[in-house]
Design a protein around this nucleic acid. Structure first.
Lengths: 356, 356
DNA sequence: TTGAAAGCGGTACCAT
DNA sequence: ATGGTACCGCTTTCAA
């Protein structure tokens, strides 16, 4: 094979590419040059054939020889080399922070991923726990993605956006409760969810409304807007609102239920259906009747809520389809000139069952 | 200065890489050559400084000038170019299939990701829904990851493993119910979970045991071993086992509960706690007493189970720590010579509460 | 202490 | 219809 004469030295640095001196599967990584040699053609021809380059006509026999050679060697093109040469990639990078966001979210996530792949993008999630905004943006920028789509609680700063754009990203899309400067912001107006719940409780006659706030870190981004929505609805009706921090455990829930009477609440919005289940059980164990003493409303309309007794009232959330967002990404990539816009993501409606 | 005569001195440099002729953020992507020019040094020096190359001593003033130039330009190294030159990357690719796997799994996932990043790997999840084994392996191989870690229900075939290794992957690790040839297999022996549940039910006197099998696609990998575990336990005691396909919806559960009497089951293992909740509600609505008529056992020991009445008996699962797996990956990468081993991932124990 | 230059694997001009 | 070849951005000898 007559590799370049550079190795031989005892340096601990990986000499050449085959570090242990023995390739695990026997052979070394085949390149397009290897394919060309085996097929008896040039690298250019290999490239033409394997990419079906339209601007150039290759005879059928040659095509076959190239394809067979590639097959035989198990040739796989080197994405890095390709995008280095091309000056851009088709990689869409999606940072993930992995706070426990519900099934609603992950369904959306999958749909988006699937749709982007259909549009011929390479979708890659980049775990970004414990990286602050700018450090994260730097790490992402190293991969030179054509677009960055940030869902949920990953911090994206304006300076990070700038960095990404300078690194060649044609579009930065954020999906969250608020706009981020310089990005295509898809806004989930979660205050809506709180408002729906609040208005419903007020209409049911509630005057003192508790709002469960998960203590799990990273969820503030979702919980605070919901609280504000409830506040807005309550303010209009002259009702009071009390935030209720709560960890997702049995004991804290029991403790909260224990001081329920002194809290004097006649209604509660429980963040989501899972917290609602936790709280409702604690309330019932403490002898508080639901909904007679206190009305309980959850959110997300999970199956779980329908299995509870009383059946859980909840706010149903319709998210934008993953396909729709994928198309937005595609458009943003193809026309980077268009000014970042603001899109609405969310629709919601109250589903009244038995707990309120 | 007067570098290679390829660019003009002060042109807006909209030629070449900038497809639309206008860079979104004003400037174009800075390279190490740009940094070198601004700092008045060579590209080599830039590389030395920015990578803190130990083998070479650069004067402090020069270092400062380079750093400042890099800062000013917002320079970010091009990962593809770097790994192309190096002949290898530090990318660990984790395929994701995104079937709804519980909170247990995703916690593990995060931990692993975090631990790998601490070991200086770049962790990247690659969404692989709807790709069959070999096509998926090809797609992954294009990125030339140093290791591939496949958790759960992503199909990894022996030929795919071979392809990946030929593409330079130093290690392929699978985490799942069974070994995969050629990989470091971390085996989750899920039959254990079924066996624990089965033995418990048999000890409680059950003679006819139902096993809920989720109809959601992609879960067979988890459900089948559990069923087999129950079968094994039942066989020893001469009890019978009946698989019960069930979709995660209210109506199918009600239908199943409707024909419960004719099924004649006195115990049921419900796949996990969520299915257990679904089934238990349906049974209670149909007038079947739990545990008196039928004992119910779930799995995963979610908080949910403790909130049900009767409290749900369940199989608690301890998974290997994410850190431990990260270290396994690291070892496998550094010593690709060592033969793939088989590791055990899982420990489990029965938690008896009120539903059985 | 620094610089010139040779590539890594592909792609796309320009000849032939 | 093909082949030769100059790049893409970065690292790393080897020379000065």
């Amino acid at each position: 094979m007559s590799q370049s004469p550079k190795q031989q030295s005892t340096g601990p640095s990986s000499a050449g590419r085959q570090p242990a001196g023995q390739s695990p599967a026997g052979r070394s990584v085949p390149t397009s040059a290897d394919v060309a040699r085996l097929a008896g053609v040039s690298r250019a021809t290999v490239s033409y054939v394997l990419n079906n380059t339209a601007a150039v006509r290759i005879s059928e026999p040659t095509r076959r020889r190239v394809r067979e050679a590639a097959e035989e060697l198990g040739y796989v093109p080197h994405a890095a080399a390709r995008s280095l040469r091309a000056g851009h990639s088709r990689m869409v990078l999606m940072p993930t922070a992995h706070v426990p966001i519900g099934p609603l979210y992950s369904r959306f996530f999958n749909e988006l991923q699937w749709a982007l792949r259909r549009l011929d993008y390479t979708v890659v999630q980049y775990g970004s726990v414990g990286l602050d905004g700018d450090a994260a943006a730097r790490a992402w920028a190293e991969l030179r993605p054509v677009a960055v789509v940030s869902l949920g609680p990953v911090e994206v700063t304006p300076s990070g956006v700038d960095l990404l754009k300078r690194a060649g990203a044609r579009a930065v899309i954020t999906v969250g409760p608020q706009r981020v400067e310089g990005t295509h912001s898809v806004v989930m107006d979660l205050t809506r969810v709180g408002r729906d719940a609040g208005e419903h409780l007020v209409a049911r006659g509630c005057r003192a409304i508790g709002v469960v706030m998960p203590e799990e870190p990273g969820l503030e981004m979702f919980s605070v807007p919901r609280l504000e929505g409830v506040r807005a609805a309550a303010a209009e009706a002259g009702a009071t609102v009390v935030p209720l921090p709560l960890a997702y455990e049995e004991e804290p829930a029991a403790a909260l239920a224990g001081r329920w009477r002194e809290l004097g609440l006649d209604g509660v919005f429980a963040y989501n259906d899972e917290y609602a289940m936790l709280l409702m059980r604690a309330l019932q164990d403490a002898g508080i009747a639901v909904p007679d003493d206190t009305a309980v409303v959850g959110s997300d309309d999970l199956l779980l809520g329908r299995l509870l007794r009383p059946r859980l009232s909840t706010v149903h959330i319709d998210m934008i389809g993953g396909r729709a967002l994928a198309e937005l990404v595609d458009r943003a990539v193809r026309e980077p000139g268009t000014r970042p816009e603001r899109h609405e993501l969310l629709d919601s409606r109250m589903v009244v069952r038995e707990s309120s």
